[in-house]
């Protein structure tokens, strides 16, 4: 018997409803990527990835596509952390996220942490394509191993393009089988949580954020475009999240009640 992984995809389209709110004409998810619209006040539509299965496991292929059309406000979160686990199927698991944001639209992609469990092998790509004038808040956090556990292999690439121009392209490879030095003094130095937060706002073109060191192992920096980035490494998931939350609040995009 050949074991094949799970193929799952989720699609979300947000559209201005013409009454100052946001409609979701497409909200398709399945299995590990089941979606729920949740209550939200104001102009934005809020979606949660609730995930009715565990994974991704080895050999799985997950794809999430979200599109915020002109004038819409879309917030996507997840109900729980994503846990990459070893599976029976051969080969790496893949998780691809593709985000499109039209001009005068806003997308917040704020999933919970991705945990790379011992023995897992996951390649995740996140690609955000923004039109001129689009707004984005995107957070990704990776935790290398559950408590006291060696991590699995994890490769993640994050690409952000604004008006056809790549403003950020970063890949991080860690865990067994990754290229040498990944846990050494130049890359992670034993830290077990790593995160990036990118905020795109048209007004940053005129008034970019000022570079700022945040604690010992994090910094807020302006990119070459209307975007700001926080890069952080931390000893554990909790301290990483605390830092990310502080910056979100500082930039005025913290959780609204």
């Amino acid at each position: 018997m050949t074991v094949t992984g799970v193929r799952a995809s989720a699609r979300i389209v947000a559209r201005a409803d013409g009454r100052g709110g946001t409609a979701l004409p497409v909200l398709d998810g399945e299995g590990p990527l089941a979606l729920r619209r949740t209550r939200s006040a104001g102009p934005e539509a809020k979606v949660m990835v609730v995930g009715a299965m565990s994974g991704p496991l080895g050999g799985d292929r997950f794809t999430v596509t979200a599109r915020a059309e002109q004038g819409s406000r879309l917030h996507i979160g997840s109900a729980a952390a994503t846990l990459a686990l070893p599976g029976q199927a051969k080969g790496e698991a893949r998780y691809d996220v593709l985000l499109h944001v039209a001009g005068d639209a806003e997308l917040c992609w704020l999933p919970e942490q991705l945990i790379s469990a011992h023995g897992s092998d996951l390649r995740i790509t996140t690609r955000a394509e923004l039109e001129a004038g689009a707004r984005l808040v995107l957070r990704e956090e990776q935790v290398l191993g559950r408590a006291g556990e060696q991590p699995g292999r994890l490769t993640s690439r994050l690409t952000v393009r604004i008006a056809g121009r790549t403003v950020l392209d970063q890949e991080l490879a860690c865990g067994p089988g990754a290229t040498g030095g990944w846990d050494g003094p130049a890359v992670l130095a034993g830290h077990r949580a790593v995160g990036q937060l990118i905020v795109v706002r048209p007004e940053f073109a005129q008034r970019p954020v000022r570079a700022q060191v945040l604690g010992e192992c994090a910094a807020l920096v302006p990119l070459t475009g209307p975007a700001a980035l926080v890069s952080a490494v931390a000893p554990d998931a909790l301290r990483l999240r605390r830092l990310m939350d502080e910056v979100l609040t500082q930039l005025g995009c913290g959780e609204r009640p």
Binding site: R157, T159, T166, D169, Q170, E171, L172, A173, T179, P185, A186, V187, L188, A189, V194, A211, Q212, V213, C217, A218, A219, V221, S231, A232, V233
Partner: peptide, 18 residues
Amino acid sequence: ADALPAASAPLLEVMAEA
């Protein structure tokens, strides 16, 4: 240019700012 590698070292970037 997307074919170019994008391997990153978070600590090199963060510590350079400090």
